[in-house]
């Protein structure tokens, strides 16, 4: 290859590039679409993680719909009060910031607590396991333990414990809800930060089956319901529920009465030692 080829190559490609870019910039002027300048300002205030927690494809799209007035400013679960206030100022509206939401795992059935029905050797993914036989645990409402939620978390707010259950770090959780979305058995729920008392179980089986599959399952004994004031807790489909609307903070908490420890308070030390293994 002689030097001439090189020069021709550079000149021709450069010329083509110039030609096309000139054409494009002309077209840009002709097809210019005016955008609301507020969209970009709001975009600057948003977290920019494009996590999709708001339900839109990304922060840019969220900024667009906020300006259009289709969603509330607090529709972005990740942004903090300061950012919301700033967005409110751009739009000229007052914001009542919603309470921070935190993901909670509604299952305590780790490797120690639940009985195994089989050895699962399929693809190491929660979704895969849920399609083919529902994983290796006897309880069909139990955490499958492959950590798909941990992978989905964009904020490093989750890790897998020794016991094979995901642990949520409250301080890091932004409440985007990604983990709850990917969980194929829907045992991760979003709860306001002030909620502390939970029934950490989703098992709808009767007492006999529930007790057999997991030592921490709700066996629907109703002790908790009898130990609180009327309406604070109720029993539905073999599962105890906390009624957060009327559950006062000073109410007597019946956690010590629960025979299987499935009713517990977040913040209490969670037993992480191998409990007695249950036999199937």
């Amino acid at each position: 290859m002689d030097i001439n080829t090189l020069i021709i190559a550079i000149a021709s490609m450069g010329g083509l590039g110039l030609l096309f870019s000139a054409g494009l910039s002309l077209a840009e002027k002709k097809f210019y679409v005016e955008e609301d300048p507020r969209i970009e300002k709001i975009l600057n205030e948003l977290p920019g993680a494009n996590c999709g927690g708001c339900g839109f494809p990304g922060c840019a799209k969220f900024a667009e719909v906020v300006v259009a007035g289709e969603v509330e400013i607090n529709g972005c679960p990740v942004s903090d009060d300061e950012a919301r206030k700033a967005i409110g100022e751009i739009l000229g509206v007052d914001v009542d910031s919603g309470e921070k939401q935190i993901a909670r795992l509604m299952c305590q059935g780790g490797n120690y607590e639940t009985a195994k029905k089989a050895e699962y050797a399929g693809i190491k993914s929660c979704l895969g396991a849920s399609y083919f036989g529902g994983g290796e645990k006897m309880c069909e409402y139990a955490c499958l333990g492959f950590g798909e939620c941990v992978e989905a978390c964009n904020f490093d707010a989750m890790y897998m414990s020794e016991n094979g259950l995901p642990v949520i770090i409250d301080d890091k959780c932004t409440g985007c809800g990604k983990c709850a979305e990917v969980c194929p058995i829907n045992i991760i729920e979003m709860h306001p930060e002030s909620h502390k008392l939970f029934v950490f179980c989703k098992n709808l089986d009767g007492a006999k089956t529930a007790r057999k599959v997991c030592i921490k399952a709700c066996i629907a004994c109703g002790i908790c319901v009898r130990n609180v004031e009327e309406g604070q807790m109720m029993m539905e489909d073999n599962l105890a529920h906390v009624n957060y609307d009327i559950f006062g903070k000073e109410a007597k908490l019946p956690t010590d009465k629960c025979p299987t420890d499935c009713l517990a308070i977040i913040g209490q030390p969670v037993i992480d030692e191998p409990a007695e293994k249950v036999e199937a």
Partner: peptide, 22 residues
Amino acid sequence: PYHIEILEYVSFILVIASLVQL
């Protein structure tokens, strides 16, 4: 004409990219 057929990929991609922008 200039015997630079080796540049066909580059120039074709250039054309396609500009057209898509348009």
